[in-house]
Write a protein that binds this DNA or RNA. Structure first.
Length: 660
RNA sequence: GCCUGGGUAGCUCAGUCGGUAGAGCAACGCAUUCGUAAUGCGUAGGUCAGGAGUUCGAAUCUCCUCCCAGGCUCCA
């Protein structure tokens, strides 16, 4: 019998007897590893422990507390979920059930068109735990296509997958089976067989740290035209602790929810009388918005932008010319019809209006690049199910600008623009970015090859100069021009798409916009659409969640609250407030009608950066007690002038008490 | 738009079998004058999301509409 040598991840080799499996390798390395092992990665491919190894294979044993391990656990959990559902709903059809980020799901069609309800989760959970307690093995088998079709003759979704794979298939289908000539199945008991490429854990006993999270409807193959299936989501982890940590993290994310904080901090609301997806900003939210917008305007002004204002509605003709009515009508509110049959639309975008400003008179090349900026309110008819807080609304304000430039100016303009975007976002405390460049789509794109190539190359080189990775979305651009989008990572690692820079070779053509070139010919300008915040509402939501409501001092609606210890200190408290207000600080006084502790608590719950307490000593010496947000250790006896200077400096630097 | 769950005082929530609506916090009033996260007492507060139906009687059962949450689809 020949030995075989396999290579381990650390580069060492092991000699095993012929016919050894990955599990045998784990045993040879150590009993603890063998006990821990869930699956193996052989020559880069995830596979079962029962896989036989060949000479010179590169093998890594997969253990639970790893990305591979969790993926296997989740995938196997999904499999158990399907088995549980078929036990509880005999005749249920099962479709697909992959591992996803943090968990898994499985899609079903229940007999008689039945739907899962929330109460079903507990039943399914109990059934899954019963299956796990039975310590069922996951047994893999390979069949011919014909056999496969026979095995799943009562499971039309599986048949559809097999047939799709035979025809060539897509990645998703291939993940379910093995290849176009062979069907891979896993069975736990004779009663339950699933079409699956695997790998799976050796037995269900290895599972258990899971929680079913929710039920949902989901279209078969993600297509709205297909029947809707019933989906159950779950999360699964390698240990009780890891599961608990994940659930805690979800709770933490909930606490940051801008809808919750927006309500608690009295920033904005969505009165149902106004309608779905339409926000009103309360005075405190209004302050944040005003400060944010003023800062943005100021930055735009020094960067050579001019400010324009345009109406919220327009005749249909404008959107016919721009093309919106032919390709974006679904996203627009229906028209208002005036007496003479004239149709007016709420604007879904600002660009056509800006083009008209460009065209208001003859333009010379000497005026270019012409940069027009507007906080433009737009209205989009979002489908009722997609509206969400401030992040997906039906009425929003974009920090929108359109740059009209010549072909020669395009590269410089893009380069300075991308720098401008990143600088501005950094001023708001966002520092981690991902860039995505969507390049020319196949087929009839507008613009010359050179224009596309130059624009793409420019965006790429700027990203590199900024030291940022740029992900290419090859062929993902719109037909009318390439696009770069900026995603920002927030404090808990979530990624939000913010800015977009979109080149447009089309719209100036639609409007026949031109400028007079040095050679006295009419030339077509290139148009760049760009929004930095995306929408002001959405940007605010992201900031609120990024800071968990603890906004940096310059953005805080109330920056300082002054409390007198007794009511005979209130006079001094007002003096302090007046002095700070003179320095431009937003400050209020809470008079001593309640105990100090209660007033401090209230101010802390409102996340005010500084709570200032003044008592006998302070009145006598002109000092303050400073209680900074995020600190449990108040500073006593701070001179008023010192505090004021510190505060003004902090505001100027966009810092906060937590990060001074 | 589709699936699931929800909407009761300003907020968070309880409300059993269908029998005239409850708490805590907040608000307001009075008292309390206090040095770093909840002072005490009292008062007021409701078209039970809206509409229709069943019933002697509906927060509770049925239907429709609106709004919210989580998914699916969508996000130019």
């Amino acid at each position: 019998m020949n030995d075989l040598n396999v290579e381990l991840p650390d580069g060492s080799t092991r000699t095993l007897s012929e016919g050894s499996t990955a599990l045998d390798l784990a045993k040879a390395i150590g009993p603890r590893l063998a006990k821990d092992a869930l699956a193996a990665r052989v020559n880069g491919l995830l596979t079962d422990l029962s896989t036989s190894l060949a000479d010179r294979d590169r093998v890594a044993i997969v253990t639970p507390a790893s990305e591979d391990g969790r993926e296997v656990l989740r995938h196997s959990s999904a499999h158990v979920l399907a088995q549980a559902v078929t036990r509880l709903w005999p005749g249920a059809l099962y479709a697909i059930g992959p591992a996803i980020r943090d968990g898994f799901y499985y899609d079903f069609e229940l007999p008689g068109g039945d739907h899962f309800s929330d109460d079903d989760l507990a039943r399914v959970d109990a059934e899954m735990r019963a299956i796990i307690a039975e310590e069922q093995p996951f047994t893999r088998a390979e069949h011919s296509i014909e056999e496969g079709l026979k095995i799943f003759k009562d499971q039309p979704f599986k048949i559809e997958i097999i047939e799709a794979v035979v025809r060539g298939g897509n990645a998703e289908d291939l993940a379910e089976t093995a290849s176009s000539t062979m069907v891979s199945t896993y069975s736990n008991t004779s009663a339950f067989v699933d079409l699956c490429r695997g790998p799976h854990v050796p037995t269900t006993a290895r599972l258990g740290h899971f929680q079913l999270t929710r039920v949902a409807g989901a279209y078969w193959r993600g297509d709205e035209k297909n029947p809707q299936l019933q989906r159950i989501y779950g999360t699964a982890w390698e240990s009780k602790e890891a599961l608990a940590a994940h659930l805690t993290q979800l709770e933490e994310a909930d606490k940051r929810d801008h809808r919750k904080l927006g309500h608690e901090l009295d920033l904005f609301s969505f009165p149902s009388e106004i309608g779905s997806g339409l926000a009103v900003f309360h005075p405190k939210g209004g302050i944040i918005r005003r400060v944010l917008e003023e800062y943005s305007r100021q930055r735009h002004e020094v960067s050579g932008y001019e400010f324009v204002y345009t109406p919220h509605i327009s005749k249909a003709e404008l959107f016919e010319t721009s093309g919106h009515l032919s390709w974006f009508a679904e996203g627009m509110y229906p028209p208002m019809v005036l007496d003479e049959g004239q149709e007016y639309y709420l604007k879904p975008m600002n660009c056509p209006f800006h083009v008209l400003i460009f065209m208001a008179r003859q333009r010379s090349y000497r005026e270019l690049p012409l940069r027009m900026f507007e906080f433009g309110s737009v209205y989009r008819y979002e489908k009722s199910g997609v509206v969400q807080g401030l992040t997906r609304v039906r009425g929003m304000t974009q920090d929108d600008a359109h740059i009209f430039c010549t072909r020669d100016q395009m590269a410089d303009e893009l380069a300075s623009l991308l720098k401008f975007v990143l600088d501005l976002l950094r001023d708001f405390g966002l520092s981690e970015f991902d860039l995505e460049l969507s390049t020319r789509p196949p087929g009839n794109a507008v613009g010359t090859d050179e224009e596309w190539a130059e624009a793409e190359a420019t965006l790429l080189s700027v990203a590199q100069a900024e030291g940022l990775d740029l992900v290419l979305d090859v062929g993902g651009g719109a037909f009318y021009g390439p696009k770069i989008s900026v995603q920002a990572r927030d404090a808990i690692g979530r990624s939000h798409q913010l800015s977009t820079i979109q080149l447009d070779f089309q719209e100036p053509k639609n409007f026949d916009a031109t400028y007079i070139a040095p050679d006295n010919t009419r030339q077509r300008p290139i148009m760049i659409h760009r929004a930095l915040f995306g929408s002001v509402e959405r940007f605010l939501a992201i900031l609120i969640e990024h800071y968990a409501g603890n906004l940096p001092t310059w953005l805080s609606p109330e920056q300082v609250r002054v409390l007198g210890v007794r009511d005979d200190h209130d006079g001094y408290a007002y003096d302090v407030a007046a002095l700070l207000r003179k320095e431009g600080v937003r400050v209020s006084v809470d008079e001593a009608s309640e105990p100090l502790g209660a007033r401090i608590r209230k101010a802390k719950l409102e996340k005010i950066p500084y709570v200032v307490v003044v008592g006998d000593d302070d009145v006598a010496q002109g000092t303050l007690g400073v209680n900074a947000r995020g600190s449990n250790d108040p500073e006593r006896g701070v001179a008023l002038g010192v505090f004021s200077e510190r505060l003004v400096d902090e505001i100027e630097r966009h810092a906060s008490p937590e990060a001074p």
